[in-house]
Amino acid sequence: MFDILLRIQRTGSLSKTRPHAMKSATPDTLQAKLHKTYGRALCIRHVDAGSCNGCELEIQALGNPYYNLEGTGIHFVASPRHADLLLVTGPVSVNMEEALRRTYDAMPTPKWVIAVGDCAACGGIFGSSYASRGAVDNIIPVDVVVNGCPPSPTALLQAIVEVTASAPRSERA
């Protein structure tokens, strides 16, 4: 136990070295923004609609001590019923189409959707075929697209800040 405490002390706070994009949106400003819109923290749900797992790795990286997403009051939640924001990765495989729709429908409104990665943006290298419906926007309304294969955690953070500044498409509809 003592060794663990020592190691924690030596590691210190790594999120101080947060990348540039995050500095412009410090936890305080981000939280103030969210507070204005939601009056509480932002809850995110992720759905892999057919990705290669590369994009998942970068979403997971948001939780590491360098990006420390949870420290800004942004949480990943286990159920779409608790989520404000949906991150969708991958081209939408036909086998995931129904699950994606149902996840989206289960979220309370207003809700935002971010298409994460080139595949979610346009179908990427997989395109559209008997097995793939291509872009996420072909299936559910998308608010913001983050390009990249996979997009960096910094690009993901920027998109999260950006999307929360706009009225969701689900409301406009």
Partner: peptide, 11 residues
């Protein structure tokens, strides 16, 4: 399994 089948072989 098979949910992420996206037709790699055909592609």
């Amino acid at each position: 399994l098979g949910y992420t089948h996206k037709g790699v072989a055909k592609r």
